[in-house]
Amino acid sequence: MSTVRKHDFISVQDYLAGEELADQRHEYVAGIVCAQAGETNRHHAIATNATVALANRLRGTACRAFNSDTKVRIRNAAGTRFYYPDAMVVCRTNPPGESYQDEPVLIVEVISETTRRIDEGEKREAYLEIPSLAGYVLVEQSSHSAVVYQRDGQAGGDQAFHRSIVSGLDAVIRIEEIPLELLLGELYDDVVLGETDSPGRS
């Protein structure tokens, strides 16, 4: 998801209160509010396909799929952050009255050339610090491929995850720790690929 940052420091409480009334969604990075820019229909179609596919896989389990309307909260040494992932899976959910989740096991972001730097940089670093996270998937808009970060449990920090690339509509995304399998082609169902991106942070 792409964002446009505004350099006005606000508290977590003020941010959450403002989001309840805002017409546009904002992300929050250690006191800085980031207004989300618009996305393409292609982006939304892939994100919706991901949420539906995850929900179908998780039916009858203790885990749930959430779409991009739900924030994830990350608290670390750099401060508190709130992002809106395109899709995520949570097995230990926050109370129903809250607007965010703290313990995702899987996060999916749909990326483009304009959002690649933040999705593979700032967000990747923050997401991989979440203790509950088993996988982070970055889905391309210009090709049938995805980058998968999967926890292997043998080390700490970034070293606890290994990176792989899956490509082709018949490829399978496997997150073994959940466990969960998704056919890559499900994410691109009825989606026409192209080179045109939406604007985003650079």
Rank of each mutant, 00 (worst) to 15 (best):
residue 114 T to Y: 12
residue 27 E to V: 02
residue 195 E to H: 04
residue 147 V to D: 09
residue 52 V to Y: 03
residue 176 E to G: 08
residue 127 Y to V: 05
residue 24 Q to F: 06
residue 154 Q to D: 11
residue 166 V to A: 08
residue 100 Y to M: 02
residue 46 I to T: 10
residue 189 D to Y: 12
residue 127 Y to H: 02
residue 152 D to F: 13
residue 99 S to M: 14
residue 76 N to K: 08
residue 17 A to F: 02
residue 35 A to Q: 14
residue 53 A to N: 05
residue 105 V to C: 10
residue 164 S to G: 13
residue 30 A to D: 14
residue 49 N to T: 02
residue 164 S to T: 10
residue 136 Y to E: 00
residue 31 G to E: 04
residue 185 G to H: 03
residue 63 C to N: 05
residue 103 E to R: 03
residue 193 L to C: 08
residue 2 S to V: 01
residue 169 L to R: 15
residue 162 H to I: 13
residue 99 S to G: 10
residue 104 P to Q: 07
residue 29 V to Q: 05
residue 43 H to A: 03
residue 78 A to W: 02
residue 202 S to H: 09
residue 106 L to I: 10
residue 157 G to R: 06
residue 120 E to P: 00
residue 178 I to E: 12
residue 117 R to E: 11
residue 11 S to W: 04
residue 136 Y to T: 02
residue 146 A to M: 06
residue 4 V to P: 01
residue 136 Y to L: 03
residue 21 L to F: 14
residue 55 A to F: 04
residue 162 H to M: 09
residue 181 E to H: 14
residue 66 F to T: 01
residue 157 G to D: 07
residue 185 G to Y: 01
residue 87 A to G: 00
residue 117 R to C: 05
residue 189 D to R: 13
residue 67 N to V: 00
residue 182 L to G: 14
residue 102 D to A: 02
residue 166 V to H: 11
residue 82 F to I: 01
residue 186 E to G: 01
residue 105 V to H: 02
residue 189 D to N: 06
residue 163 R to D: 05
residue 63 C to S: 01
residue 85 P to A: 09
residue 42 R to I: 05
residue 193 L to Y: 03
residue 141 Q to S: 04
residue 27 E to H: 02
residue 146 A to F: 04
residue 197 D to H: 12
residue 29 V to I: 07
residue 195 E to Q: 14
residue 190 D to M: 01
residue 184 L to E: 02
residue 99 S to R: 08
residue 28 Y to S: 01
residue 56 N to W: 03
residue 79 G to R: 02
residue 171 A to P: 11
residue 36 Q to I: 05
residue 14 D to K: 13
residue 199 P to E: 09
residue 111 I to N: 06
residue 159 Q to L: 13
residue 12 V to A: 07
residue 180 L to F: 15
residue 62 A to H: 14
residue 70 T to L: 11
residue 112 S to I: 05
residue 193 L to P: 09
residue 1 M to S: 11
residue 104 P to H: 12
residue 144 H to T: 13
residue 3 T to C: 06
residue 153 G to W: 11
residue 117 R to Y: 07
residue 127 Y to C: 04
residue 152 D to S: 15
residue 189 D to M: 11
residue 73 R to T: 07
residue 144 H to S: 15
residue 55 A to K: 02
residue 21 L to K: 15
residue 37 A to V: 08
residue 96 P to N: 14
residue 80 T to A: 11
residue 200 G to A: 06
